[in-house]
Simulated assay, not measured.
Amino acid sequence: MAVMNAAFDPGYGEAWNEAQTVSMLTLPGTWLSLASCDGTPAGFALVRQVADEAELLLLAVAPAHRRTGVALALIAHTRRLLRDRNGATLHLEVRYNNPAIELYKRAGFVQIGRRPGYYHGIDGQVHDALTLSCSV
């Protein structure tokens, strides 16, 4: 939860609370991959797979470990796990103005849709979500 709270800007309301995260982990096909640097949690990927498709529900990297390859390593690890589990496609949703979009593009994701007003910030503003997808 420390990585979650540090990684997401609270103004956009994108971080999950502990109860939401734990409840998601109880669902079939859901897993959490952790990345650490020198024994310190650096990031995580929360994924849910149904049949041959999966969704990257959350990808978070602690600010001190950004731009070090942690996020790309987590995505690559997720793709390997999906291949091992007969997965074919990985999807995600991201706020339209999130700088992480460039990371996702480098990782091979392409935009396949847009959800107007998907995110609701604590300031009352709404933000569209982009739906991205890649083959595993």
Rank of each mutant, 00 (worst) to 15 (best):
V22W: 10
V22Y: 08
S23K: 10
L25A: 04
T26V: 10
T26F: 10
G29C: 07
T30G: 05
T30Q: 05
S33Q: 15
S33G: 10
L34H: 11
L34R: 12
A35M: 03
S36K: 12
C37N: 11
D38S: 14
G39H: 09
G39P: 11
T40C: 12
P41L: 00
P41E: 02
A42L: 03
A42M: 03
F44G: 02
A45M: 01
A45Q: 06
A45V: 01
L46W: 04
L46P: 08
L46F: 02
L46S: 06
R48F: 04
R48D: 08
R48G: 08
V50Q: 10
V50T: 09
A51D: 13
A54Y: 02
E55D: 15
E55S: 06
E55F: 01
L56G: 03
L56I: 00
L57R: 02
L58Q: 15
L59Y: 08
A62M: 04
A64Q: 13
A64E: 13
H65V: 07
H65S: 07
R66G: 06
R66Q: 14
R67E: 14
R67V: 03
T68E: 15
G69S: 04
V70G: 07
A71D: 09
L72G: 15
A73C: 05
L74G: 08
I75K: 00
I75S: 07
A76I: 08
H77C: 11
T78W: 05
R79S: 13
R79G: 10
R80H: 13
L82A: 04
L82G: 05
R83M: 09
D84C: 12
D84H: 12
R85T: 08
R85Y: 01
N86M: 11
